[in-house]
Write a protein that binds this DNA or RNA. Structure first.
Lengths: 96, 96
DNA sequence: ACTTTGTATCAAAATATATACATAATTATA
DNA sequence: TATAATTATGTATATATTTTGATACAAAGT
């Protein structure tokens, strides 16, 4: 069996991902893509503050990482394999 | 981009899994294992009502399925591939 | 210095989840 | 039918998350 600390940390990461917009964000960042806050808020048609807010949740829970580049913040997956979680759930939905 | 309905359903499934006890339950049920409520509540050292409660959440969100067999309810993963989510998160935690 | 563009944070109300305990509902057996 | 074993549900309180709008901060250009 898994240890409690690991279970709690795993649940924090999964909770971070488990939100419609945040799933969409993780999906957009699959295949090692890097995007700015503006690119995400425009692509998803959400307020800038909303995009920034969800990105900070994902970052604080270890799902994403970001690098400042001038005015922009570039976000990407901290662990590229995390994109598999989205495709896994997606496959389940297609299996009727 | 993924559709809204799918995103919402995916987030419901992930939210269901994203809890320490429920992660432990999904992990116990990997490799197509089937367990009863009693086996789970004893293995995890939690009240029977607590085990039943979390199992019903997982079932209602499409993560688990159950079959009654006399006095027992046998629970198993609805989609065996869901166990990959746990191992994926687990690997991320081991990558430093 | 001022303005523009891009990001991040704050505060408050609404909604959702978790936790704990008690009790009800099933099924099998005496 | 009474009871023992297994599972499911109900209720209440506490805690956490979501959502929205306003605002603050940071970097670059004028």
């Amino acid at each position: 069996m898994i240890e409690l600390k690991k279970l709690e940390n795993a649940s924090e990461m999964l909770k971070a991902i488990a939100h419609p917009l945040r799933i969409a964000i993780v999906d957009m960042l699959s295949n090692n893509k890097t995007l700015t806050v503006t690119e995400i808020h425009e692509a998803l048609n959400i307020e800038q503050a909303v995009a920034s807010h969800h990105l900070s949740i994902l970052k604080s829970k270890g799902v994403l990482m970001s690098v400042r580049n001038g005015k922009n913040s570039n976000y990407k997956l901290k662990y590229p394999r995390l994109a598999k979680i989205i495709s896994c759930i997606d496959k389940c939905q297609n299996d009727k």
